[in-house]
Design a protein around this nucleic acid. Structure first.
Length: 490
RNA sequence: CGGGGUGUAGCGUAGCCCGGUAUCGCGCCACAUUUGGGAUGUGGAGGUCGUAGGUUCGAAUCCUGCCACCCCGACCA
């Protein structure tokens, strides 16, 4: 491993790539556009899964699993859905290979599938086809199911974690007896996501609603959380859709109500993906590497021993055993890095690169003085403290670090929401400052598309807390009742 | 699919114009000295120069085809 990573200010993309690879999170694989998530990166993803999964269970959901392959005909049943995904699907056409006689393995043309199978880009269709058989009465509702899975979207251009041909995610798919209940579910899950992003990932998000143009293919309403990255670009971090009766109608899923009336069921779907890894990285990291918020970090505290002789090491071991046990009592995830193949300085740099929130270093000098050295990843500061009362001190410090990381990101985000009132101002802010631009918009798809063509900025969302305000569209001058957030986005 | 570029050790590269079997750094292995911020020294291992063909006594180098990857567009919930 070579020293250091590219500076953020020099070349943001290069910095991001360097960081992902050198922090041992992921790398590109032999398959175009596909990513290998390495053990350290996967450990972080597992932490995300654990926290989210707990919340899903707490809100009444269960996990299930549906097939990877979806018959092609399922897709065409919901018109806007097929249109939204058709251009990026992997298709299975054959089920067998053969030897061509010259030692080459080729596709056996005799083994052509009668109906092609689509590798799922999302599972609404196969799930709603399944739900038809599960639902007859209002007594069968609601169905509150989530699945952890991989999906494939054949993107032209990929970036580690942010846009890969295959990615990991969770997708919730719920069925309800009433429209109101489904809408409440979509809102509830958006709040679960927002709370997770802010409380666990320490990434502040804007809760909002997508415009018609940016809406999920097949949805009536798409809610989203939008985060801001350190280069001033926005990142959609999660979506929650109210699907109305669109999929129920497409897959003929009806139920008999309490009143004995036959009606189509109401649906939602919601998902977050390994893209959150990208959000996490780009929201907090610096030129020394990853910065992980303590609530998420697989390892919250790393202990590095400094010693010359075996006796010294044994002495340190005895103390670290005690300290580790005390920290584990407080549910702190601690790692003792006593590898004898690397020197302390190397370990310091390595754990900083990997974003461990807090480092404890101790050697014989400390043992004599009854102290340890504490080094914070977020502020890059060090202090020597007494061993007495250390576990509680560390617990408090981890909370302080969590808050500090969040507040830093929040300050940055808030400083990068700029209100503009003219198109010239809009373009100037976009180029010179970046971030979210809060501006009036006339509400038409056409205006939105023209702004995108001219500036590459899109409407990220109509914030849910946006207040009514009379104004005029910065592009057309037509009347507008509220501001929306524009930004360049990943 | 358009426009540009690059393929040489695990990674990053020099050599290519002007043909003679490959340079340097990081990493890796061994030993020694080291260990409170990415150690140092000495020795060592590792290469069908993307691939197929052509020219030549001789090709990483010149010519042709192919392949792969990267960047800029188009595309992207």
């Amino acid at each position: 491993m070579s020293k250091g990573i590219t500076s953020r200010s020099e070349d943001y993309s290069q910095w991001y790539n360097d960081l992902v690879i050198k922090a041992d999170l992921a790398e590109y694989s032999a398959v175009r556009g596909c990513m290998v998530i390495k053990p350290y990166g996967y450990a972080i993803w597992e932490r995300m899964q654990a926290v989210l999964d707990k919340r899903f269970k707490e809100t009444g959901h269960s996990n299930a699993y549906f097939p990877l392959f979806i018959p092609k005909s399922f897709f065409s049943k919901e018109a806007s859905h097929v249109e939204g995904f058709a251009t990026e699907c992997a298709v299975v056409t054959h089920y067998r290979l053969k030897n061509d006689g010259n030692g080459n393995i080729i596709v056996d043309e005799d083994a052509k599938l009668e109906e092609e199978l689509i590798v799922r880009p999302t599972s609404e269709t196969i799930i709603w086809n399944t739900y038809r058989g599960w639902i007859e009465s209002y007594r069968d509702l609601p169905i509150l199911v989530n699945q952890w899975a991989n999906v494939v979207r054949w993107e032209m251009r990929t970036r580690l974690f942010l846009r890969t041909a295959e990615f990991l995610w969770q997708e919730g798919h719920t069925a309800h007896a009433t429209s109101d209940e489904a809408i409440a579910e979509a809102q509830q899950m958006l709040e679960v996501y927002a709370d997770f992003a802010e409380g666990t990932l320490a990434v502040p998000v804007v809760r909002g609603r997508k415009t018609e143009n940016e809406r999920f293919a097949g949805a009536v309403d798409t809610l989203c959380i939008e985060a801001l990255m350190q280069d001033g670009k926005a990142l959609q971090a999660g979506t929650s859709h109210f699907l109305g009766q669109n999929f129920a109608k497409a897959f003929d899923v009806k139920f008999t109500s309490k009143e004995g009336k036959l009606d189509y069921v109401w649906a939602t779907s919601w998902g977050v993906s390994t893209r959150l890894m990208g959000a996490l990285i780009m929201a907090h990291s610096d030129d020394q590497g990853l910065v992980l918020p303590p609530k998420l970090a697989p390892t919250q505290v790393v202990i590095v021993p400094i010693y010359k002789t075996d006796e010294e090491k044994a002495n340190l071991d005895a103390y670290v055993d005690q300290l580790s046990a005390a920290l584990k009592q407080l549910d702190i995830r601690v790692k003792y890095d006593d590898r004898d193949t690397q020197r302390p300085g190397f370990k310091f740099a390595e754990w900083e690169l990997k974003g461990v929130p807090l480092r404890v270093a101790l050697g014989s000098r400390d043992m004599q003085n009854g102290t340890v050295e504490l080094a914070r990843r977020d502020t890059q500061t060090k202090e020597t403290v007494q061993q007495a009362g250390l576990p509680d001190r560390i617990a408090a410090l981890l909370e302080e670090i969590q808050d500090n990381i969040y507040n830093k990101a929040l300050t940055f985000r808030d400083e990068h929401i700029t209100e503009v009132n003219s198109y010239d101002e809009f373009k100037q802010v976009l180029v010179e400052k970046g971030g979210f631009i809060s501006a009036h918009w006339d509400g038409t798809v056409e205006t939105e598309k023209r702004v995108k063509e001219e500036t590459k900025a899109t409407i990220r969302c109509i914030p849910l807390d946006s207040k009514e305000e009379e104004g005029v569209c910065v592009f057309t001058g037509k009347p507008s009742k509220q501001r929306v957030l524009f930004a360049k986005a990943y």
